[in-house]
Amino acid sequence: MSIITNINKVFDHRIRLGIMSVLMVNEYADFKTLKELLGATDGNLASHSKALEKAEYITVEKQFIDRKPNTRYSVTKLGQAEFKKHINALEKLIKKQ
């Protein structure tokens, strides 16, 4: 059951998968963009991004643009590697059927 071990529990949620998907193909994304793309609420997105940040899969950068707070997310090298592993595991699981 080595495939199952590659299924990463941290990614086991639609919003987290979504955040990772967007960040894999974009250099960065800000809070508002992610919210619109994922159709998530503020609290939902904040808590799930925090979980990914805690696992060191993404980095969060807070800054001010025109005096408005702006939160930028980007994926780390570790996050990229783990997400790729996760996708491979998903695909293998599907093919097995």
């Binding site: 998968l17 998907s21 967007v22 963009t33 994922l38 996708i87 695909e91 599907i94």
Partner: peptide, 11 residues
């Protein structure tokens, strides 16, 4: 998988 693909394209 389809959610992932979709979001990668859309974003």
């Amino acid at each position: 998988i389809s959610t992932i693909k979709n979001l990668m394209n859309k974003s």
